[in-house]
Design a protein around this nucleic acid. Structure first.
Length: 258
DNA sequence: CCGGATGTTCACCT
DNA sequence: GAGGTGAACATCCG
């Protein structure tokens, strides 16, 4: 589930833990520790004090007086602080809290802690993540950045928007919703957009992120309830196209998106 | 029972 | 080099 909007919600709860000191670390799942041994990760984080929580795209960055901890949530990862989190259940995952799904935990001196729960193990934890591999964050990227992302590309528009190395944070749901609102066909070649279309896309992408954030998640778009067999355009009730673009299921209106 | 699902990475093609 | 496809991770839901 987690796209930029959900990770931003996680960031805000993580911020509550700033100033607290870590006195135990459980990194039992070696698969979940990316590019680092669990024991190394535990030793690196233990006895550190949290100094901040940042986000770039779907990557949550926990700052300490030592290393930076990077958290990725995949499709089913949730973050709990002191046993509660901003999101109780995700679209494709139950709200159950099976202890076997606790993939990583920081325990704080004086009680409480931060836990990553991830049934499918599609997320991961890393030490000092390379944020340069990610493009500018979609929530704040300017029109010029979006234009640079599109120009000269022969890839489908949607594929380009989902490319985290070029634009960070947009997932499948935000992408379809923004393209629907902008009236742009996801299959259009990215490089074929006119400057006016690129500006329109930028405006609608930012507006979509703001709106869905306000509504409470990536899954709250108008197109969302129609993301099913025989789904219809919320605007004109025409049967939506259902295609695979960039390896992802894609819904679009054949009349409103061109 | 089967297929597909908000993500990322990698191997292997064209 | 640029894109595309399919697999892998593991669980839930229709």
């Amino acid at each position: 589930m987690p796209e930029l909007i959900e990770v931003e919600a996680y960031r805000r709860v993580a911020e509550r833990a700033v100033g607290r000191r870590i006195d135990r670390v459980h990194a039992q799942d070696s698969w979940y520790c990316k590019g680092v041994e669990p024991r190394t990760l535990e030793a690196a984080m233990c006895h550190r004090t949290l100094t901040g929580a940042r986000r770039k795209g779907k990557l949550l960055l926990i700052d300490t007086d030592g290393p930076v901890l990077g958290l990725r949530f995949g499709m089913t990862g949730r973050l709990l602080i002191d046993g509660t989190g901003p999101i109780d259940r995700l679209l494709y995952s139950s709200g159950r809290d099976d202890p076997a799904w606790h993939r990583f935990t920081l325990g704080f001196a004086g009680g409480g802690g931060m836990t990553v729960i991830d049934p499918r193990r599609l997320g991961g934890v890393e030490l000092d993540p390379d944020t340069e591999r990610l493009g500018p964050d979609a929530a704040t990227a300017g029109a010029a950045a979006l234009r640079d992302l599109l120009v000269g590309s022969t890839a489908p528009l949607k594929t380009r928007l989902l490319d985290q190395s070029r634009l960070a944070g947009v997932g499948n749901l935000i992408c379809d919703e923004a393209l629907w609102r902008a009236g742009l066909d996801p299959a259009r070649l990215a490089g074929s957009l006119s400057p006016a279309e690129a500006r329109r896309l930028h405006r609608h992408l930012r507006a979509t992120i703001a709106l869905l954030s306000e509504r409470g998640g990536s899954h709250t778009g108008d197109l969302q309830i129609e993301r099913t067999r025989d789904g219809r355009c919320p605007r004109c009730r025409l049967l939506l196209d259902r295609r695979t673009i960039g390896g992802r299921t894609t819904f679009s209106c054949p009349r409103h998106q061109c």
